[in-house]
Design a protein around this nucleic acid. Sequence first.
DNA 1: GCCAACGTTGGC
DNA 2: GCCAACGTTGGC
Length: 155
Amino acid sequence: MAYWLFKTEPDTFSIDTLKAQGTSCWEGVRNYQARNLMRDEVKLGDKVFIYHSSCKHVGVAGIATVTREAYPDHHQFNPESPYFDPKSDPENPRWIMVDVAYQQHLPLVSLKAIKANPALAEMVLVNRSRLSIQPVTEAEWHNILAMAGVVSESC
DNA sequence: GCCAACGTTGGC
DNA sequence: GCCAACGTTGGC
């Protein structure tokens, strides 16, 4: 079981949206490195931090679980969609998505707090800020849970 | 809304 | 395959 951080703009899709929906596809990833991670590495049952970006309160806002591994993102074939990609071949779709299920909200762990924690200095979030799907180490995962005041469940 | 960082495109 | 131009991300 692996840990991840998925970014979203809460004005469009937030942890509250996910809670309301229960389960959602994670569509619209249009970056090759992020896609490759979703396609090759993100597995059923993996845990995901939901991160709110480009908003007033930037940071980790909750936890989700992967409920379906990579499958084609149909939005790429819909000319009405902001995620439309005219260069994607339906016979060989360029973009994929996974499904995630809501697990819980967290008291927001802000980007500022993450950057201020020396134990998290190696986080991808801190060093490769533009990657929208990124791996989180087990140590980082538990560290952020501790910052949120949540006691980690035993495995 | 600004702008730095950085990913993508396309001419050569 | 290089790299300049361009577009996007995302914190502030």
